[in-house]
Simulated assay, not measured.
Amino acid sequence: MRALEDATLEIEGALETRGDRTRLLTTLEDDIDDSVKPIILGKMGQIRSEIRDLKSYYDLESITVSSRRHISTKLAILAIDLTECLSQYLRSYGEVPEAERATLDERVSRLEALVNEASKLIVSNRRG
């Protein structure tokens, strides 16, 4: 149910961008007719309403998730993903040319360092 709830929010966000760039590496093509978007948004609302009804019917409690833990986990996964972007691990996508390896590795390492710095800030910052 949480995955379904997350997906509805992501879909709504994709429909509401109306061509605005919110990402750097993904551009969503605005190829859904404007007349259909409100209908889809309505369906997403119905889905969330059904989730709400199930929650109420089965007397389900909302879980409280630590923002710190959630963000820290996401950043840890991203750091692992970035490690796999180093030239030595990209062989399945084709060999990275020798002249580009050092540059790629340096740039990916900078990104990984930034992710790790953000992670350290999250882990060390506790409210209360």
Rank of each mutant, 00 (worst) to 15 (best):
I32H: 04
I32K: 05
I32E: 01
I32W: 03
I32N: 02
D34N: 10
S35C: 05
S35R: 15
V36H: 10
K37S: 07
K37R: 15
K37A: 05
I39S: 02
I39A: 07
L41W: 00
G42Y: 05
K43E: 10
K43I: 03
K43M: 06
M44V: 04
G45P: 00
G45N: 04
G45F: 02
G45K: 11
Q46C: 07
I47H: 07
I47N: 02
R48W: 06
S49I: 00
S49Q: 13
E50N: 10
E50C: 06
I51F: 10
R52L: 14
R52M: 14
D53N: 15
K55V: 13
K55P: 01
K55E: 12
S56T: 14
S56Y: 12
Y57P: 02
Y57N: 13
Y58H: 13
Y58M: 08
Y58I: 07
Y58F: 15
D59Q: 15
D59P: 00
D59V: 14
D59F: 12
D59A: 12
D59R: 15
L60A: 12
L60I: 14
L60R: 13
E61F: 04
E61K: 15
E61P: 03
E61H: 11
S62G: 06
S62K: 15
I63D: 13
T64E: 13
T64C: 02
V65P: 02
V65S: 05
V65G: 05
V65M: 05
V65E: 11
S67R: 15
S67G: 10
S67Q: 12
R68A: 08
R69Y: 09
R69H: 05
R69W: 05
H70I: 02
H70K: 10
H70G: 01
I71E: 03
I71D: 03
I71Y: 10
S72T: 07
S72A: 15
S72R: 08
T73L: 07
T73N: 07
K74D: 09
K74S: 12
K74N: 09
L75D: 02
I77Y: 05
L78Q: 10
L78I: 12
L78G: 04
I80A: 11
D81H: 11
L82K: 10
L82Q: 08
L82S: 03
L82F: 14
T83I: 00
E84P: 00
E84G: 06
E84V: 03
C85I: 00
C85N: 07
C85E: 08
C85A: 06
C85K: 14
L86T: 08
S87N: 01
S87M: 01
Q88W: 00
Q88I: 13
Q88K: 11
Y89K: 08
L90W: 01
L90A: 08
R91L: 11
S92C: 06
S92Q: 11
S92I: 14
Y93I: 01
Y93P: 00
G94V: 03
E95P: 00
V96M: 02
V96Y: 02
V96K: 01
V96L: 02
P97V: 01
P97D: 10
P97T: 08
A99S: 13
A99H: 09
A99Y: 08
A99K: 11
A99G: 07
R101E: 13
